[in-house]
Design a protein around this nucleic acid. Structure first.
Length: 173
DNA sequence: CCCTGATTCGC
DNA sequence: GCGAATCAGG
């Protein structure tokens, strides 16, 4: 007699619509409505047709294509990012502060290289946003045995004493 | 690893 | 129709 879990009643659907159009995320909506997972929410959203606000009309988006569940996945184990770069990766703030300080050391940014152009003897100091296509490495002649050039080695391996004198990290206003 | 939405498909 | 499982991307 008792009906099972409250499925998508009119009220719940309307609430869903409202929250979705309100810009709430599926997980948030699921939490508010209660009794449903975010997958359920997403599924319902799609079924209702008020799905993806962004319709990829371009062929540039094969996105979304899960392999049939029965199939064994021969997919590679995974590999976030080899990140076999430098032993002492500088902080982003530090990099940015350097980039934003042209007056200090006018590092000859002559040789900036992509990861493909990088050689063992080249400075691996990251320049710019790693997620950007503009991302480059310093590429200057690295100190033998070290991943950085002289300039960036000073930055990366600051003596504790010298580091005490606070270097100015990127300043917010 | 956290999150986001998108898609497939057994139920 | 439903939504877990899975995928792709941030």
């Amino acid at each position: 007699m008792m009906d099972a879990g409250p499925s998508w009643t009119k009220e719940r659907v309307e609430l869903l619509k409202r929250l979705w159009s309100d810009g709430r995320s599926a997980s948030q909506i699921a939490a508010e409505i209660g009794g449903v997972s975010r997958n359920a929410v997403i599924g319902k959203v799609h079924r209702l047709g008020l799905a993806g606000r962004v319709i990829k009309a371009n062929g540039a988006a094969p996105a979304g294509g899960r392999r049939p569940r029965g199939e064994a996945d021969a997919t590679a184990p995974a590999a976030e990012t080899p990140s076999m770069l430098a032993p002492a990766p500088p902080s982003l703030a530090l990099v940015q502060s350097e980039a934003a300080a042209p007056s200090d050391f006018a590092l000859p940014e002559s040789s900036r290289v992509t990861i493909m152009e990088l050689r063992e003897f080249m400075c691996r100091w990251p320049m710019g946003d790693p997620s950007s296509p503009e991302f480059r490495f310093c590429g200057d002649r690295a100190i033998t045995g070290l991943p950085y050039c002289t300039h960036h080695s000073r930055i990366a391996y600051q003596p504790a004493a010298e580091r005490r004198r606070d270097r100015k990290v990127v300043g917010f206003r």
